[in-house]
Design a protein around this nucleic acid. Structure first.
Length: 1053
RNA sequence: GGGCCCGUAGCUUAGCUAGGUUGAGCGCACGGCUGAUAACCGUGAGGUCACGCGUUCAAAUCGCGUCGGGCCCA
């Protein structure tokens, strides 16, 4: 049984109902089971970090994923859809630290690493549960019961296995590198974990004394005074020219060396009063210089270092053109240092404090606090040329916001840079949506790929499975838990720290091998997701059946993130890309295009949208708001709009239900094939349209043009279904008995709605399900239990009639033009008109058998299509063109203008059509050429016109008594219907009605239509007259075209 | 400073791959409809398609440059 649905579209109730249904019937499981054995579609969920709250961006992301998966499933693919969670790493450590008020690693060690790890785990699991609930509200059908979690042993093993493989491929190495270092977290952090913002730092110019030359200095500039103690060299640009100048200040002179172009600005900053150029130095000559460290006396190690000048391309023509090089504290410095075999001097420890190597004066001082100390010492040594402050972008730890420092440390690396070319080749094999995401953006990133530092000196992460022997240096990478057990004889319940730290392996040399205490960079966790989600390495079979992934989709920030980390991890282990296609989507910004942030207070929570509007609306909105790869500017107005659209869809669906219920619509009546011969042209048209829509949506879905899909569907619902087809079929649904014309209309609507619900199922799964349950399940118990178990609809080519679609488009245009013309002529649509004239400009128009549709919609008695170029008689207006008349008639011109004004436009035009016109005026005759006048055609008063794409539409609004009678009848009908509504009567209820019209002529007109009126309003008892006594439950006075009409109605007994 | 993307009506946007009269929705003004009805429809006003130069018969669309925004890098 189809049931009527009450009231407005209420997303909240509807979605709750459907959720209950899905839960009760285990619909998700059933759908997935149904497709087992189908063609495989391997999707990998980019795991969100377990922060506890989803935001609009993650909601959008999951909605895209869900829509694609539902679509693939309807296309009979067996989809792999494990949800994923990224659960390790500093963000969680930091949260747990905060909750205990820890300040540094020592606090953690004191508290106990085992307990700390336990807290982190609990925290991550709780956050995961919270977020799962939030994602479920969106209707995202992923496997939430069995997600992959980066903290599970089987996941840890996938990372271990990968590293072992990288080691076997000779791509793992340990080395001293300068890394971004967070002195609070006391760990290396990845480039991607560095957050930049402006910070005010010192800006100092320092004089390095040149050896062997009295009172002579190389001038350098830096914003990090604390790196001066670690200075080893100076770099100059090989293409620059340098100058040696004698500069004077306060009566004292000194000799300074710097880039020639920068002499003046440097001396100005140093407040020198004047200077003289002594000589120019080439970059080569610069490289012959040596100097002594400006704080040499305070940093003992500096005594043994030979300070030289080297050439480097990265030196720019800024500041002094001489760059302070501290290979222990800078990336470029380090690289230059390695190239020239400098000492990698790094007198700073992991806590950001100077070590003993920095000398007694500095030892134990925190570097950022040492800045002022160093400056004071430079001043005392007479080595400071200038000091100032400077606001510049500086990197910070993205979790604890501490300014990062660069220090040289021993870390584990994957030699990604060796694989660049291979990676580029792989990228070109992947299908990217949009294309440039791969060919331009990602390729560009890979061209700059550096070796990947995978080690972190933290606790909550996947332990590095690397054991080394302190005695002989032997190294071993363990690939699985089983392997570890075999090698150590110990079985671990949990592979995390600290238990794994207590496992020692026997070294062939007889020594005991110790685990490298580090954990993995958390990016490495998600990097192995595509095989970890298949439970590789423990389940090799699943891996060989599914891998690599068919599809992944994430935001454009993941270019350097997950797109890259996955590729890197797959390259070092499998030597190929782990995914075949990528849809890169945008970011969610606020309506002004700004980032959503707590500080601006412009954050929109997905739940807020769901609460106010519903999940389907949020989904449809984010999918359709713009192209997936562009940033989404969230707008409440636009959400509201989407809501209105779905509400119209709901009303369109609801419209037919009462009639279907009344008429006991059943499976037999729903069978469209029974009514082939009864289909009206408009029925065939909407069926053609819905099949065209299926074709379009399918085509766009194959290339993930999600926004176009939403727009096609919306357009269909609004334009074709609601604004047009339903208006057309309304009269047919009122017919009281079973007649094939009515049933054909029902069957058509039914067909269209069922097709639509399937077509919308991937995008608005709730409303689609609700409609399906009523329309399909309501009639056929044997139908699939959910719309999501149905097959994706196929376009029926036999139903598509492009010619008919074009004709209908034309009819719609004409109809709109006709209402426009009516408006101009002041004739309401309720009043019939005798004739509509279509005047095509060039080629004639073919209404394709839709004349009756046009008549109905324009409320007209007759449609006439004129021949191309033909027009009904129109009023002409003729205006003089002064520019042309003036030069010809000179002084006479004024009279000519008057003559034209007085002339009969029709006559002038007739003559001009044949050549020239002659106008007589005050006894004179004027010869007029066509260019002297502008002739405008004006529709005559009773024949207003409006333009459409192919010409003009005229509406003959001349009234006849018959038309007037009909008009008044409709006015009266409308009022009575209004009153019926007010009494809340049912469609099929009969009434008694009394209508009193105070004007005799109008009454006479109305009387002609008495039977008709009574029929339309279902009045069993109907009185129409003048001076009648009004009775009934509801009595109202109305004003119809200035005439008072009093109506009383009551329900008939 | 570099790479990629974006800039169209007051707001949100379509069109750009493949050059041929910029099209919607919201908001505003006016009108209409009324057995989908706290719904719906029409009309109107509102655009130097960010700016400049070039290619072309023709540029929102292609190329170059500038400005502004986003993501990423340095």
């Amino acid at each position: 049984m189809i049931t009527e649905v009450a009231g407005q579209y209420n997303a909240e109730d509807l979605e709750n109902q459907i959720r209950l249904l899905w839960e009760k019937e285990q619909t998700y499981r059933t759908v997935r089971k149904l497709r087992v054995g189908g063609k495989k579609f391997f999707f990998v969920d980019g795991p969100p970090y377990t922060t506890g709250r989803i935001h609009l961006g993650t909601a959008w992301n999951k909605v895209i994923k869900d829509s694609v998966l539902r679509y693939k499933s309807m296309n009979c693919f067996e989809v792999k859809d494990r949800a994923g969670w990224d659960m390790h790493g500093l963000p969680i450590e930091v949260k747990v630290e905060e909750s205990f008020g820890f300040r540094n690693k020592k606090d953690i060690e004191t508290y106990g690493v085992d307990k700390f790890i336990q807290r982190c785990k609990e925290f991550a699991l709780r956050q995961k549960d919270d977020m799962t609930a939030q994602f479920k509200i969106l209707g995202a059908w992923l496997d939430w019961e069995d997600p992959y979690m980066t903290l599970k042993n089987e996941y840890l093993e996938a990372a271990w296995w990968t590293l072992k493989k990288a080691h076997e491929n000779n791509l793992l190495e340990r080395g001293l590198r300068v890394v971004n270092w967070c002195p609070r977290c006391q760990t290396a952090i990845a480039d991607s974990e560095v957050e930049y913002w402006d910070e005010t730092d010192y800006s100092i110019y320092v004089k390095f004394p040149v050896l062997g030359e009295e009172n002579t200095y190389i001038v350098i500039w830096t914003t990090t005074p604390w790196t001066i103690p670690a200075n080893v060299a100076v770099a100059v640009n090989p293409t620059f020219q340098y100058s040696k100048v004698r500069a004077r200040k306060d009566g004292k002179a000194e000799i300074l060396i710097m880039a020639s172009d920068l002499v003046e600005s440097v001396l100005k900053i140093g407040r020198y009063q004047d200077f003289e150029l002594l000589c120019a130095l080439s970059a080569e000559q610069m490289q012959e210089l040596t100097y002594s460290h400006p704080l040499g006396g305070m940093v003992p190690r500096q005594k043994d270092i030979l300070h030289r000048v080297y050439a480097a391309d990265f030196v720019t023509a800024e500041n002094t053109g001489c760059v302070h090089i501290a290979p222990g504290h800078g990336l470029e410095d380090y690289e230059l240092g390695m190239k020239h075999h400098m000492e990698i001097f790094c007198p700073v420890g992991g806590d950001g404090c100077y070590t003993a190597e920095a000398g007694a004066k500095y030892q134990g001082l925190y570097v950022k606090e040492a800045d002022s100390e160093v400056i004071v010492d430079l001043v005392e040594q007479g080595k400071l040329l200038s000091q100032g402050r400077l606001a510049h972008r500086y990197g910070h730890c993205w979790r604890c916001k501490t300014p990062i420092i660069f220090i040289a440390t021993s870390q584990w690396f994957l030699r990604i840079s060796d694989l660049r070319d291979k990676m580029l080749e792989e990228v070109s094999r992947i299908t990217w949506y949009p294309e440039w995401a791969g060919s331009a953006r990602f390729s560009d990133w890979i061209k700059n790929a550096r070796d990947w530092c995978i080690s972190r000196q933290r606790y909550w992460g996947i332990p590095l499975p690397i054991w080394t022997c302190p005695a002989c240096g032997h190294l071993e990478v363990i690939g699985t838990a089983a392997e570890l057990e075999e090698r150590s004889g110990q079985k671990l319940a949990d592979l995390h720290r600290p238990d794994v730290d207590h496992i020692f392996l026997d070294c062939p040399c007889g020594g005991k091998m110790v685990r490298s205490p580090d954990v993995f960079d958390v990016w490495f966790d998600s990097a192995v997701a595509s095989w970890a989600t298949l439970r590789f390495p423990s389940h090799e079979e699943e891996f060989s059946e599914w891998w690599p992934a068919d599809f992944i989709t994430e935001g454009h920030d993941q270019t350097r993130g997950w797109f890259y980390s996955q590729l890197g991890a797959a390259m070092v282990s499998f030597g190929r890309a782990p995914y075949k296609s990528v849809l890169m989507h945008g970011f969610t910004l606020d309506d002004q295009g700004r980032k959503m942030s707590k500080s601006i207070g412009n954050i929109v929570q997905p739940e807020e949208v769901v609460q106010k509007f519903g999940a389907d609306i949020l989904r449809f909105y984010v999918l359709g708001a713009n192209a997936p790869w562009e940033d989404l500017h969230f707008s409440w107005d636009a959400v509201e709009n989407t809501s209105r659209m779905l509400n119209i869809f709901w009303n369109a669906y609801r419209f037919a239900l009462p009639y279907m219920v009344l008429d006991k619509f059943d499976a037999g009546k729903a069978d469209l094939s029974r009514y082939e011969s009864n289909l009206r042209p408009e029925d065939r048209w909407i069926l053609s349209r819905v099949n065209s829509l299926i074709e379009d949506v399918t085509k766009e879905m194959e290339v993930y043009q999600l926004h176009r899909i939403v727009r096609s569907i919306s357009d269909f619902i609004l334009e074709d279904l609601s604004r047009w087809y339903i208006q057309l079929v309304r009269p047919r649904t009122w017919i009281e008995q079973d007649n094939p014309d009515k049933l054909a209309a029902y069957a058509t609507i039914y067909e269209v709605l069922v097709k639509l619900s399937k077509l919308m199922a991937p995008f608005t799964p709730f409303i689609a399900e609700s409609i399906y349950q009523n329309l399909v399940k309501g009639l056929d118990e044997g139908a699939p239990q959910s719309v999501h178990m149905c097959q994706w609809p196929k376009a029926d080519a036999a139903r598509i009639d492009k010619h008919l679609e074009e004709s209908m488009a034309l009819v719609r245009e004409v109809s709109m033009a006709a209402s426009n013309a009516r408006q101009k002529g002041g004739r309401k649509l309720r009043w019939p008109v005798s004739e509509i004239l279509i005047a095509p400009a060039k080629e004639t128009v073919d209404l394709g058998g839709l004349e009756n549709v046009l008549k109905g919609q324009t409320n007209s008695k007759k449609i006439t299509v004129l021949a191309a170029g033909e027009k009904p008689k129109m009023d002409l207006e003729i205006a003089p063109v002064h520019k042309k008349i003036g030069p010809v008639y000179k002084g006479e011109a004024k009279n000519v203008v008057e003559a034209i004004a007085a002339a009969d436009p029709t006559e002038v035009k007739r003559q001009l059509d044949e050549g020239e016109a002659t106008i007589s005026f005050r006894g004179m005759e004027y010869r007029i050429t066509a260019d002297m006048v502008a002739i405008k055609e004006l529709p005559s008063q009773n024949l207003p016109a409006a333009e459409f794409s192919r010409g003009f539409v005229f509406v003959d609004i001349t009234l006849t008594p018959e038309l007037e009678a009909e008009g008044y009848a409709r006015e009266i009908i409308r009022r009575i219907q209004d009153m019926r509504k007010e009494l809340d009567l049912r469609v099929e209820d009969q009434i008694r009605a009394i209508v009193d019209i105070e004007s005799k002529p109008i009454l006479d007109l109305a009387l002609q239509k008495k039977e008709h009126i009574a029929g339309e309003v279902r009045a069993a008892n109907f009185q129409l007259g003048l001076g009648l006594e009004l009775q009934g439950k509801l009595v109202k006075d109305w004003d119809i075209e200035g005439v008072c009409v009093r109506i009383g109605i009551d329900r008939a007994v």
